[in-house]
């Protein structure tokens, strides 16, 4: 707990008419980490993010960035943050360089400062050779790179990314991940929303799973998976009539933590597969259960998500924001 705190959200609520978009949210983001807000569409991620970037006033509760309140010290907060919106917030008539020049003026940089920084950023996102073409000629991946360059122009202490790889091809996606990791290596704090589980898993140091405006769980991806309690062995049996017998036979074995009946077999949570697998097979043999299929899984973030929200992330809830 001795890590510096970059962002502090305390009892944040945001209500639209009768709909609670964000409901008593509290969390902290440490300086220098990549923090993810993971949840389905309409879960309240964007509302939380937009509060942090000073564009929304909370109905109640507070949010602060490096100790500066997002409402009272909005201007100070704006100096500390960079923002990469979810939509391709690009003016198709302007060139890449003109986008950055405009932002340079809005951050009150001098022409020389801006020119120097713009050259660095164009190099970083590999848009140097396209910098003077209108953005309407850019591909989706290039627009995203420009978006990110725009977010980095103020040289922010915290960078906010809203669904950074939504709708991108695999290659562009991996490239964006590379940038994010590199920025972290430079000491930047990064807060991102995503509804891609693999993205959250790969990229985030810690993440909060948000659903229905509330945090369901929060922690490092690895911790969250471990917290589910071990790996899962799934058995599919040829005959279902002896399933109950096998279940009770396995119930009390030392290497096995929990057994759950499924439609065609058993899901068995095990501490270590090396010990559990022989025990499972031995019991099945002894009881004469013939196994059709056996599968072994480490818990994935999907399982964490399902365990905490009761559904898969793809099951979108209707967007009400």
């Amino acid at each position: 707990m001795d890590r510096a705190i970059a962002i502090e959200v305390s009892h944040l609520c945001k209500t639209y008419d009768a709909h609670k978009a964000v409901d008593d949210l509290s969390f902290q983001v440490y300086a220098g980490e990549i923090f993810g807000l993971l949840g389905p569409n309409g879960a309240g991620k964007s509302t939380t993010l937009r509060t942090l970037i000073t564009l929304l006033h909370p109905t109640s509760g507070t949010a602060s960035v490096f100790g500066h309140d997002t409402v009272r010290d909005a201007d100070t907060v704006r100096m500390l943050i960079g923002y990469v919106p979810q939509e391709r917030a690009i003016d198709r008539f302007l060139t890449g360089r003109e986008h950055l020049q405009l932002l340079g003026a809005l951050y009150h940089l001098t022409k020389e400062e801006a020119a120097k920084r713009i050259a660095e950023l164009l190099k970083l996102v590999e848009l140097e050779s396209h910098a003077d073409r209108p953005a309407k000629t850019y591909s989706g991946g290039m627009k995203r790179k420009l978006d990110i360059a725009c977010g980095l122009l103020p040289n922010p202490k915290v960078l906010f990314l809203d669904e950074p790889t939504l709708g991108l091809d695999v290659q562009s996606r991996l490239r964006i991940w590379e940038y994010v990791r590199m920025l972290k290596a430079r000491g930047m704090t990064i807060v991102m929303t995503t509804n891609y589980l693999d993205e959250a898993d790969q990229l985030c140091d810690r993440l909060a799973i948000i659903d229905g405006g509330k945090i369901k769980t929060l922690g490092a991806p690895a911790e969250l998976k471990i917290a589910l309690g071990g790996d899962i062995v799934s058995l599919t049996l040829k005959e279902t009539d002896r399933m109950a017998g096998l279940e009770s036979a396995l119930q009390n074995q030392p290497a096995i933590k929990a057994v759950r009946l499924t439609a065609k077999g058993l899901d068995i949570r095990v501490e270590s597969p090396e010990k559990a697998l022989p025990a499972i097979l031995e019991s099945a043999n002894r009881l004469g259960c013939s196994i059709e299929f056996i599968q072994y899984n480490r818990p994935r973030l999907d399982d964490v998500f399902i365990a905490h929200t009761g559904r898969r992330i793809q099951d979108d809830i209707p967007k009400e924001e």
Binding site: I53, T54, R78, Y83, A89, L103, L106, Y107, H108, P154
Partner: peptide, 8 residues
């Protein structure tokens, strides 16, 4: 939104 997130 991008414009409004800057300190203008």
């Amino acid at each position: 939104e991008r414009l409004m997130s800057t300190p203008i």
